[in-house]
């Protein structure tokens, strides 16, 4: 990589760092949310749960047809639920972003694809990823504008 190109990309690197690290203001007071999730073959109702960071989530889990389970990625929640016997799960939504919850008990053919989404606002990972995409796109286009002729991708 030429020195000139390096200088060119430096501002974009800085911009990327800003996008990744800048704290964004967000401060609704945490509340306790009573939510009910009903599992059926092969979906959760509601499909998307929206809470704010810091909220205490009290989930009542029900199954309407056969035995299902609930595994929430990265929240360590794992519960088995059978029709007629509601389960209660409680956790504090202390991490922001989108986390999938999945059925953890084989429940039929499409079981591996039985998922729902827990969206903990502010969804900073998504916002930052979008920002980073725009930075990467801009950096790529700008570097192409100044590209000396004859270079090929994969060769730097």
């Amino acid at each position: 990589m030429t020195r000139a190109r390096l200088w060119l990309l430096l501002p974009f690197g800085a911009l990327a760092l800003v996008v990744l690290l800048v704290p964004l203001p967000f401060a609704p007071a945490p509340v306790t949310r009573e939510l009910t999730v009903v599992a059926r073959q092969f979906a959760f109702e509601p499909p998307v749960l929206r809470v704010n960071r810091g909220d205490r989530v009290r989930l009542t889990l029900e199954a309407s047809d056969v035995v299902h389970g609930l595994h929430v990625d990265e929240y360590g929640v794992d519960a088995r639920v059978e029709p007629g016997i509601a389960r209660r799960v409680e956790f504090v939504a202390d991490r922001a972003g989108k986390f999938r919850y999945r059925c953890s008990v084989s429940c039929g053919p499409l079981h591996p694809f039985m998922t729902g989404e827990l969206v903990v606002s502010p969804n900073l990972p998504f916002v930052r990823a979008v920002g980073l995409t725009l930075v990467v796109l801009a950096a790529t286009l700008v570097s192409l504008r100044r590209l000396p002729p004859g270079g090929a991708p994969g060769t730097t």
Binding site: D65, E82, P83, G84
Partner: peptide, 18 residues
């Protein structure tokens, strides 16, 4: 029993609906 009669016995288990 609960699947049909409900955990609380109110007759409204998911089996009843099915």
């Amino acid at each position: 029993c609960a699947a049909c009669h409900g955990e609380s016995g109110d007759g409204r288990g998911p089996g009843a609906a099915a």
